[in-house]
Amino acid sequence: MKKILCIGIILFLAFGVGLFATGSGEKEMPANPRIKMATTTSTENSGLLDYLLPVFKEKTGYSVDVIAVGTGAALELGAKGDVDVVFVHARSKEDEFVAAGNGINRKDVMHNDFVIIGPKSDPAGIKSMKDAAGALSRIATSEADFVSRGDKSGTHVKERELWKKAGIDPSGIWYKEAGQGMGAVIMMTNDMQGYTIADRGTYIAMRDKVDLVALVEGDPVLFNPYGIIAVNPEKYEHVNFEGAMALENWIVSEEGQSLIAAYKIKGDQLFYPDADK
């Protein structure tokens, strides 16, 4: 009995060492083959990264550790030097980040857009409105449930912008600040049959699981560009700047861009490459 246990433990340990040592391949390896990337929940929840990164690894040997948080938190991790590269969507904050010397070489990668989603019954009556801010004021007036990310993510930043534009400071029990990722917020919205603003990618990825429809789309203000920024190696010597640049360069390369354009869920394109702009 003891012997069997011993053998079991040894196998377990051996296997574990093997697991932790993943990433070693026969190909020529970069000096530091691990890149830490902080990104938004929307890029991960949409499945885009699971689709892109294996190809990137195949090409270059870099494996990317994805830490999916809100845009605010992702930039904060970058500012602290805890990651090598950030891949986010909140242009104004990205510029602040670069201006503060935390990151360099910001590049446009792609965009999608935000949509205001809500129940089919549409109690606030915003369907097909072309003015996103106007739609929000209607939701506020009708006091229909609205779920906000409430986490300083790119989506949240966009939502605050829209409220500001509508001249409303939302408050009341109808306005729920979830403090969660995009996926979780869509699930909550579905349960409440309320409204929320989502990035199209996550929405499409989850469309089949929820009973919500895109009600307002196409307003230019809902445009959602994603940028990639390498963490400034002059500020943090230890960052894997080479890896970060390899990722940046690959993702804006023809190959990366065409892969992004080709990524579809059930026939819908989720992201539109931007790098050539």
Binding site: K36, D65, I67, K80, G81, D82, V83, Y236, H238
Partner: peptide, 13 residues
């Protein structure tokens, strides 16, 4: 965290 006292260990994440 990198900016913390044990940041040089580089073990975050």
């Amino acid at each position: 965290s990198r900016s913390g006292p044990l940041g040089s260990l580089n073990i975050l994440f």
